[in-house]
Each structure stands twice: as structure tokens, then as C-alpha cells.
């Protein structure tokens, strides 16, 4: 009991900050969603029946699913290199994971813009090499958004996967080898299944994170590949429709909360699988 009281005292300031900065404003948004422009659930009906908004929801889910698969696959490879690579490979991998953390998301999005745009690095190389006559449309579309988001999210996939890989007992792999299993069999039938909980955790984490992305899709999508967060922004700042924006926000919040609950259940020790 005293332990709980002490924890509450220590956590108190954080809880108060969260309440003031997060929960109170969210309650305000919840109120807007059922009162603007008139009381009722009309905005939710509108949000879930408007084909334009529904298409944004579907696009968001599609992009996030693709980004999750790409980030987790790439993250698995990076984690393998980080955990099992030689000393030099390990150091380089570590740098490549941590350096992006110090660079702002805005800078990284503009970086991709300058690489992928019509007169960017990729297109000018390809044109210079005579491989293409017209620049490829690599940005201001879903492709650009997926590239930018995947790049941002790979490190977040690496951590849970690497920690799962580190907890694999090396003797289990030795045992498999001693029984005559080759490298491919050991990877697919022993190592991958043993690290699967980490992969699932990484997938949920990346997916939840990606749903709310705003800056990267806004810059690399160029307004043509709008995702939910950008839709909310547009409905508040460009076509003042606060009630609808609030309703979409609440729907987004509920979806994320659902996935977070799933993630927490996965991560809770003692409840493995």
C-alpha cells in the first residue's frame, strides 16, 4: 500500500501534465465531435459514409500495412546484422540506426524529396545513364510516402526484433546444427520461429506509430496521397469543418487505442503468446 502511495507521489507530476496537456484537450475534441455544428452523432455518420473520407481511411490502412511489412522485413535484416555481425558491421549498423534519430523528421522528408523528385538524384542518374527518357514519378504519390515512412520507422522495428534475437540461446542453434541441420533450415525452422514474438511486437509498434503520421505523408505525398492525420489538418485549417475533423480524430484515437491494447497484451511478460 505504501509502495503504491510512493509511486503515485513520484508519478504525480507526469500524470498531471498528461491530464492537462493531453486528456483535457482530447475531451474538448470529443465534445466538438458531438456538438458541432449541432448536437448528435451526425458527424460520425458523415465520416463513415462520405466516400472521400472512407477512401482516406482505406489509403491510410493500405499504406500503413505496406510500410509495416517493409519496415519489419528490413528491420529484421538490420537486427540480424546488428546482433550477429562482425565488430565492424555491428558498429556501422549501430551508427545507421542511431544517427537518423538526431535528424528532424522534416529534414528527412525534404531529403527524400531531393532524392526522389523529378530533378532529384535518382531521376537525373537514370536519365544521365540513358535508362529513361522521362523522369519517373517517385514522389508526390503513395510510393514517395511509403519510402519516407519506411525509412523513418525501420529503427523502431529493429529494437524489439534485436532484443528477441539476443534472448535466443545460442546453444539451441548449436543443437540444431549438431543434428545435421543446414543454415537455411536452422533459420526458417528454429531461429525465425523463436524470434517471432519480437517480430509481432515490432509490427504492432510500427503499425500503431504509422497510422498517425503527418509530416512525412504531407511533404512526400504532395497533397495527392492524403492520410488520416493530414485529412484532419485540412478539415480544421482549410475547410473549417471542426465537427467532422473532431469525429475523424476520435475514430483514429479509438483505432490506435485498440492496437495499443493488443501491443500491451503481447508485451506483458508471463502472458507470452
Amino acid at each position: 500500500m505504501r509502495q503504491i502511495t510512493r509511486s503515485l507521489v513520484l508519478l504525480g507530476p507526469l500524470l498531471i501534465l498528461l491530464a492537462l496537456a493531453y486528456i483535457l484537450p482530447f475531451l474538448g475534441i470529443l465534445r466538438w465531435s458531438v456538438t458541432l455544428p449541432e448536437p448528435g452523432l451526425g458527424q460520425y455518420r458523415a465520416a463513415l459514409s462520405d466516400p472521400l473520407i472512407l477512401s482516406v481511411f482505406w489509403r491510410t490502412l493500405r499504406i500503413c500495412a505496406v510500410v509495416t511489412v517493409l519496415s519489419v522485413s528490413a528491420g529484421y535484416a538490420v537486427a540480424l546484422l546488428w546482433v550477429w555481425g562482425g565488430p565492424v558491421a555491428r558498429l556501422l549498423t549501430e551508427l545507421c540506426i542511431f544517427i537518423p534519430f538526431w535528424i528532424s523528421v522534416l529534414t528527412r522528408a525534404f531529403g527524400w524529396l531531393s532524392i526522389l523528385s523529378n530533378r532529384g538524384l535518382v531521376n537525373s542518374w537514370l536519365e544521365g545513364a540513358g535508362l529513361i527518357a522521362e523522369p519517373l514519378a517517385l514522389v508526390r504519390n503513395e510510393f514517395g510516402v511509403i519510402v519516407g515512412m519506411t525509412h523513418f520507422l525501420i529503427p523502431f522495428a529493429v529494437f524489439p526484433i534485436a532484443s528477441a534475437m539476443r534472448s535466443v540461446d545460442e546453444r539451441v542453434l548449436m543443437a540444431a546444427r549438431g543434428m545435421g541441420a543446414g543454415r537455411a533450415r536452422i533459420f526458417w525452422q528454429v531461429f525465425l520461429p523463436m524470434t517471432l514474438p519480437g517480430v509481432l511486437g515490432a509490427a504492432l509498434l510500427v503499425f500503431v506509430f504509422s497510422i498517425g503520421f503527418f509530416v512525412t505523408p504531407a511533404i512526400l505525398g504532395g497533397g495527392r496521397s492524403v492520410m488520416v492525420a493530414e485529412l484532419i489538418y485540412l478539415r480544421i485549417f482549410q475547410s473549417p469543418d471542426w465537427g467532422l475533423a473532431a469525429a475523424v480524430s476520435v475514430i483514429l484515437m479509438i483505432a490506435i487505442a485498440g492496437f495499443l491494447a493488443l501491443l500491451l497484451r503481447k508485451m506483458t511478460p508471463g502472458d507470452a503468446r
Partner: peptide, 19 residues
């Protein structure tokens, strides 16, 4: 290599496949 020797081995900590 060990995979070609065909010996049986019991490791410290058993090293069973947990999955």
C-alpha cells in the same frame, strides 16, 4: 563440421526448441 559427424549431443541447459 559437427553437422556431418552425426553425433548426438545434450547441452547444458538442454537447448530444447521452445516453440
Amino acid at each position: 563440421p559437427p553437422e556431418a559427424r552425426g553425433f548426438g549431443m545434450v547441452f547444458q541447459g538442454y537447448a530444447l526448441f521452445p516453440h
